[in-house]
């Protein structure tokens, strides 16, 4: 089953880029106004991935933990930044709350998976740690933005309800319950859908990649199952932490709703 990988030559890459040119042509034909976007994003992809390829090449050669950890911190920083850019209505103390949650949620899950399950040797082996934590952080980032957006919307839409509940003597935890559970649900929907459709509707990227690079399909399947569980765990833990820290930000120290 183990086959050698077929490398792609520069000529092969240029051939596939002709497909991008075709897309640009079609977009132009339909006056979709996307020709420029397609061109630039195609170019960006080329440059960015080439850089990442070289960087990974260098990183995989690393023999100490510190630079690997630094890279993980930078990834978390980018994730928090991306959430910040995507979420329009930010809760108070946004960056502190989201940063802490991602650090502990994703960090905890990555450590759990790499150390206790795979048993990496050395524990920081960048060949595993970087791509795996990339998937974990990326998915948690999506879940976290959904949760944060949903929470803000809930607090906005449910203002009358929450204020009524406060006026009836509810604690801030009790009055936030519907908003918090709705936000948590929103964050987990992509994970639930992905797990349910996996293998039927699409073959997941990591598994496909492993199979293409010659891994025995059953091993690839086991890795895919494992990473999905870890991703779901990370999304739920990160979201839980964000919500636990975050709902309080909507209230004053004397337990009334902050003004919108």
């Amino acid at each position: 089953m183990n086959t050698t990988i077929i490398d792609l030559s520069l000529w092969d890459l240029l051939t596939v880029y002709s497909l991008l040119l075709m897309s640009i042509g079609l977009a132009h034909l339909l006056k979709a106004g996307q020709s420029k976007d397609l061109f630039w994003s195609g170019l960006r992809m080329f440059v960015q991935l080439l850089v990442v390829g070289y960087v990974l090449h260098l990183i995989f050669a690393l023999k100490t933990a510190l630079p690997v950890l630094l890279i993980l911190i930078v990834m978390i920083g980018f994730a928090v930044q991306t959430i910040g850019a995507r979420v329009k209505t930010k809760m108070p103390h946004f960056y502190r709350v989201v940063g802490t949650a991602i650090l502990f949620g994703c960090g905890g899950m990555t450590f759990f998976f790499c150390t206790l399950v795979i048993g990496l040797e050395p524990w920081y082996d960048p060949r595993y740690l970087i791509p795996l934590s990339g998937m974990i952080i990326g998915n948690s980032m999506t879940g976290a933005s959904l949760a944060v957006e949903r929470l803000a919307a809930e607090f906005h839409e449910r203002r009358d309800e929450i204020e009524t509940a406060l006026c009836l003597g509810g604690s801030i935890q009790a009055v936030s319950e519907p908003a918090v559970s709705s936000a948590f649900r929103a964050a987990l929907i992509p994970s639930v859908n992905a797990m349910a459709a996996m293998g039927l509707v699409f073959l997941p990227g990591m598994m496909t990649g492993q199979i293409l690079s010659g891994t025995e399909p059953l091993i690839a399947v086991k890795y895919q199952i494992a990473i999905m569980c870890v991703i779901t765990g990370s999304v739920s833990l990160t979201t839980f932490l964000i919500l636990r820290l975050g709902y309080r930000a909507y209230f004053t120290p004397y337990q009334s709703l902050r003004e919108d």
Partner: peptide, 9 residues
């Protein structure tokens, strides 16, 4: 505050 609001809704 919750105890107060239960006494003065």
């Amino acid at each position: 505050p919750p105890a107060l609001r239960a006494r003065i809704p």
